[in-house]
Write a protein that binds this DNA or RNA. Sequence first.
DNA 1: ATGGTAGACCTTCTA
Length: 259
Amino acid sequence: MRIATWNVNSVNARLETVLRWFETEQPDVACLQEIKCVDEKFPAEAFERLGYNVAVHGQKTYNGVAMLSKTPLEDVRKGLPDGEGDDHARYIEAVVSGPVPVRVGGIYLPNGNPIGTEKFAYKLAWMDRLHRHAQALLALEEPLVLCGDYNVIPEPRDADKPEAWLGDALFQPESRAAFRGLKNLGLTEAFLEIDGAPESYTFWDYQAGAWNRNHGIRIDHHLLSPQAADRLRACVIHRDVRGWEKPSDHVPVVIELEV
DNA sequence: ATGGTAGACCTTCTA
């Protein structure tokens, strides 16, 4: 089973590019972030024609997440627990049916910039809610994949120019500590399990020629429960997609689980 | 050198 995560930066503006990738790669499951549309505007038919079941947690203009699966999605949850007062659509979860059911959570973690503002406080509070939810899910002792745009650069090696990110919310000690805290619950970071991964970055800014200069960062991650990590066979960053026509600033990251 | 681009949308916000 191949599970993809991809921040598409508007699914409707990007539809041709996104469908081209889906037609070629045919992932079994995909979590999309920053769809930037309400549920009714999500191009569900285009994905259904490719054989996908669709679950959407949309929002006007900003944010919005979706999950696509070749097999039916069960037990769909939209939003993290304790969400009163939080109107951002940033989390969707479902159990992907099959011989070995896999629970998948799709994450669009808050950016948090600029630091020292309520936006950074919101990021950390959201990460705390994710931590508590992940703890509850791990207690189920199921195959679990929490993937998405975490908006966290875990380590200096995950940035082409780490010094350029020192004042950024994505690389603050608090953000990195919260990400480590998630992993310390017993979640495995899929990318780090793969030897000889040729490319480290998943995001290159549209500005200042970041792609041409390879000024990238690795912020899109798959975290796996022990029951999922035991089945991990591959983790691939689809770097070339950043060079396509009308690209997202993020590229797909795909894991393969033996199920 | 505080630039630069992209998307949604009412003119600025978010990233």
